[in-house]
Design a protein around this nucleic acid. Structure first.
Length: 798
DNA sequence: AAAACGTTTTTTTTT
DNA sequence: AAAACGTTTT
């Protein structure tokens, strides 16, 4: 919201700007721009090719962001555009933030900020707010104050629509409809131009439900994420004058991660760039990993056709990784077809091969990686020496893999942070609080009303909500107004009625305060949470996570201070779902491969390289060869995150849906070039069952030429035996727990448990103990714990 | 209306 | 195994 009201800048766009301001002329005459120093030839070419279409193929670690930001600095310094005339779009808020920082660093105080540097979505919102009335039709259109729905709201809305058509929600879940509609929006298909046949999806109801959903959104004065792009495109198409004003304003367009654009984004860009064609797209077809979200690698593959005469510049010198890491990644990605083709090279020498190691199961894998990390911390055992935890990342394919690491690291007390995990603004308490704020700001926000009308419990159940809904529908009111009306009519009486009256009256007061600029919005927010009883609700909650939730609420209120008003805050949160907490502690980072794109770490662990998990079975089932290739690109992204050392691991057994499943090492492992991989064997695991996976890996790597031998290796045979009993839980030698008398322990004893770590015995009953661990109380069979000794945790066998 | 209980499903990846 | 969901009990 902060730079929404820059109408001055908007008007200024119409007046011609001198191509060279006096300031930049002086700067140019004095000396060549210092920011160009140190760029290689390709980077420099990318910076200086300012006019006309440019495709910048930038491999991993080739200084892509540097080229982009320097290019912007160059545009500004030469006076070819003012900051407000450059459109620079990224996919993530993080990328946008980083670009802003780096431009500011390059130019110092010369730039007063780039108002149009942001994600596709945030730029689209700013555009849409100015032309909201043009979205919709004569009877019903958007208003500039429209709200942006999150996924939760979307699903709830669709559930209502599905129920209204008496469709069986069991067979046709709202989530599926949401996915369908999302896919359509990604391709810029409105209900009106849905191809014949596609509208028959969802048991024949797809098209009708989509139209009903869009209608409902307009009634709510709301849009969803997909709408942001799609509405912009349809707006541009239907109103050439509007399009022209934006084309004139944005003299230069830059696009980051172009390989991840979907059809809607592609159309959006083409419309804006059509007139002057000053568009520079940066991307790497080998890092396209969002096909499932509608991204079209085709967009980057056919750039030269779309923009005839485009310059194609390749950045191929890698400044990030060692030759071994680069070679391993290049060898792997070579298996993909239809690439634009790049040859990454580096001046660097030395370094170590990519390491490969197999483990018995996912717990052993986590244990081993934990030990490795401790070794790095101590600076011994490994050639690359001591590393901070901040230098180390664990990149997983699917977030459920994170648990094993969290459990293990918690046990051994290794500090870690999960990046991109359950996000702050998606937590229940935050969303509830936000719903209160939303309703206070816009009393017609029916979805917010539904969310909180009975939170905390006010004695208003389904019945009461239905009465409010029918009352509102009959009289054409919002739910909040409908509630007031229902009380007046006497439709809702008794305890619930008085609670509802209090709720509506309070909301009226809060609304008056919310639109009163004289009222401090932070205090108002605190007052809302207080008076509504929401804070009290959590204070009275006995569950162990209640205190954490109260902390989160405090953090939320604190975050409000950064904004001028509640409206501005709500807008921010809708688009920027991540809360920045700049933690400086030394911690290992755990994240998904998707979240890792654009990041780099000296030491990278890549666990879970097993067929079915990585490459993911689902991806292959749904998208066949295309899916497999995208998985391979994901593997490529993973390896190329590493600067000095990459370690790939896999496990023979993994728990899925609570059942042990055995699995084979990933086919990607066999695609790694042998010369750049070192196969490790877990210590002390020769011959035994534990070594099976490792033995398989070893033979697989060494006998690739004589492939048949692989199938005679002990590892393969054991794998076969295991998969023969497919679906059945793998028979793991049962750990017999002696019915050990709990009497061996007494209250107050320190005990150790493999998973929970050290704890204190608090209670004893027959053969079970109640033990307080750092993570809380657990009831455990006495045989599973042992007296805590002075010995290291690592000595304990599992 | 809300809690307590039993059943079914879930696991890609996210602006 | 845990969460989400639906049904029954208070």
């Amino acid at each position: 919201m902060s730079d929404f009201d820059d109408s001055d800048a908007f008007e200024a766009a119409a007046t011609p700007v001198p191509q060279r301001g006096p300031l930049s002329q002086r700067a140019m005459a004095a000396r060549p721009a210092p920011y160009l120093d140190g760029l290689n030839d390709a980077q420099r070419a990318a910076v200086e090719a300012l006019d006309g279409p440019v495709l910048l193929l930038a491999g991993a670690g080739t200084g892509k962001t540097r080229a982009l930001t320097t290019r912007i600095a160059h545009l500004l310094t030469l006076g070819k555009a003012r900051p407000g005339q450059i459109l620079a779009v990224t996919f993530t808020n993080k990328a946008a933030r980083e670009m802003k920082d780096r431009i500011a660093r390059l130019l110092g105080e010369m730039v007063e900020g780039m108002p149009w540097l942001g994600t596709f979505h945030s730029v689209s919102v700013k555009i849409l707010r100015r032309h909201a009335e043009l979205v919709g039709d004569a009877t019903l259109h958007l208003k500039p104050s429209f709200t942006i729905l999150d996924t939760d709201d979307q699903i709830r809305l669709m559930k209502q629509l599905i129920a209204a058509e008496y469709i069986d929600e069991k067979r046709w879940p709202a989530r599926q409809l949401a996915g369908l509609i999302d896919g359509w929006k990604n391709r810029c298909l409105t209900p009106a131009n849905l191809p014949r046949g596609e509208d028959r999806a969802f048991d024949g109801w797809g098209g009708r439900l989509y139209a009903a959903y869009q209608r409902r959104l307009l009634e709510l004065n709301a849009v969803d994420f997909g709408d942001l792009l799609m509405h912009c495109v349809t707006l541009f198409q239907a109103h050439p004058d509007v399009l022209k004003s934006w084309q004139d304003r944005f003299r230069y367009i830059l696009v980051d991660e172009y390989q991840d654009t979907n059809v809607a984004q592609y159309m959006w860009l083409r419309l804006l760039a059509r007139a002057h064609r000053n568009i520079c797209c940066v991307g790497d077809d080998d890092q396209s990993i969002y096909g499932w979200r509608g991204a079209e690698v085709g967009n980057i593959l056919r750039f030269e056709t779309d923009f005839p005469g485009a310059q194609v510049i390749r950045l191929e010198q890698n400044y990030r990784s060692t030759p071994h890491i680069l070679a391993a990644a290049s060898g792997l990605i070579a298996a993909n077809k239809g690439r634009l083709g790049k040859t990454l090279w580096t001046d660097a020498t030395g370094g170590e091969p990519v390491r490969l190691i197999g483990h018995w199961d996912s717990e052993a894998e986590a244990r081993w990686i934990g030990e490795e990390i401790e070794a790095f911390q101590g600076g011994h055992r490994h050639a690359i020496g001591r590393r901070n935890l901040n230098d180390i990342a664990i990149l997983v394919r699917a977030s459920h893999q994170m648990r094993a690491f969290e459990d293990r690291f918690m046990t051994i007390g290794l500090p870690y942070r999960v990046i991109g995990g359950p996000r702050f603004y998606e937590r229940q308490e935050i969303r509830d609080a936000m719903a209160y704020f939303r309703l206070a700001v816009s009393p017609a926000d029916d979805l917010a009303f539904e969310r909180i009308v009975n939170v905390p419990k006010r004695g208003l159940g389904d019945k009461a909500v239905q009465k409010i809904q029918s009352e509102a529908r009959e009289r054409g009111l919002s739910l909040l107004e409908g509630a007031a009306s229902a009380i007046a009519v006497g439709a809702i009486a008794g305890k619930g009625g008085s609670a509802l009256r209090q709720f509506t009256e309070s909301m009226g007061r809060w609304h008056a305060d919310a639109i009163d600029p004289a009222v401090n919005h932070v205090e108002l927010a605190e007052r809302i949470l207080d008076e509504s009883g929401y804070t009290t609700m959590w204070q009275n909650d006995k569950s162990p996570d209640a205190p954490g939730r109260l902390d989160n609420l405090k953090e939320l209120v604190k975050a409000l201070e950064e904004f001028d008003n509640l409206q501005g805050f709500l807008e921010h949160v809708a688009l920027v779902m991540d809360a920045d907490k700049g933690e400086q502690e030394d911690q290992v980072s755990i994240m998904t491969l998707h979240a890792a794109k654009g990041l780099e770490y000296p030491v990278v662990f890549l666990p879970g390289w097993e067929d079915g998990l990585f490459p993911s079975q689902r991806s292959m089932d749904e998208s066949g060869m295309k899916g497999l290739e995208e998985e391979r690109r994901l593997a490529y992204v993973g390896i190329t995150r590493a600067e000095e050392l990459a370690t790939i691991t896999f496990a023979g057994n993994r728990r899925m849906y609570g059942q042990w499943q055995s699995s084979l090492p990933s086919r990607f492992i066999d695609e790694l070039p042998e010369d750049h991989v070192e196969v490790l064997t877990p210590p002390g695991l020769y011959g035994g069952g534990y070594g099976a996976a490792a033995a398989f890996a070893t033979s697989s790597m060494h006998d690739r030429a004589a492939h048949a031998d692989v199938y005679n290796s002990p590892g393969w045979k054991r794998m076969q035996e295991r998969s023969a009993s497919r679906g059945q839980p793998v028979h793991r030698t049962p750990v017999t727990i002696d019915a050990e008398p709990a009497a061996r322990f007494s209250v107050g004893d320190r005990v150790f448990h493999q998973k929970f770590g050290n704890g204190t015995v608090q209670g004893i009953a027959e053969d079970t103990l109640t033990v307080e661990f750092t993570t809380g109380f657990k009831t455990i069979k006495a045989g599973y714990v042992q007296p805590a000794s002075g010995s290291s945790i690592d000595d304990v066998p599992f």
